[in-house]
Every structure is written in C-alpha cells, then in structure tokens.
Amino acid sequence: MKTNYFTATTLSQNDVSSNLSSRLVTYVAVMLLGVSILAVAGHAQTPTLHGAAHDTRHATGFPCH
C-alpha cells in the first residue's frame, strides 16, 4: 500500500485525499457498471434484447412493454 512508504509525519494531506478520491472513483465506477448492466439487460428496448430478456424482465417486475 502507498502509505507504507511514508511515516506519519511525511504523509501529507494531499496523499490522504488523493487516496480517498481514488477509492471514491472506484466505488462510483462499480456502481455505474451495475446500473449500466441493469439498464441494458433490464430496460433497453432494442427488439433482439427485448425478445431474449422478455420472460426475465416480466419475472423481475420491470416495465417491459
């Protein structure tokens, strides 16, 4: 881990906040990936997708058609 290379006194506020913000970016990215899968698999209305996902969309309670 990055913090292993710093002593408590040399670890600046910038390092802490950049570490925090990169973690935040990861959480947001994972969340957006999940939402995108949900939008495509569960809600997008192209005919092929709709046909293949039809039964599962109904059986999951999504608005289907």
Partner: peptide, 21 residues
Amino acid sequence: LWSLAFSILIYCGYGLMLVAL
C-alpha cells in the same frame, strides 16, 4: 437459457450496485 442468462446478468448488475454501497 436466455431467461437464465439474463437473470444472472441482472443480478450481477444488482450485485455491483450492492457491493459498492
């Protein structure tokens, strides 16, 4: 099989949202 595949896909989407939280 399409139904199973989409069920897995949708729950993977749910899973990503859940573990982020």
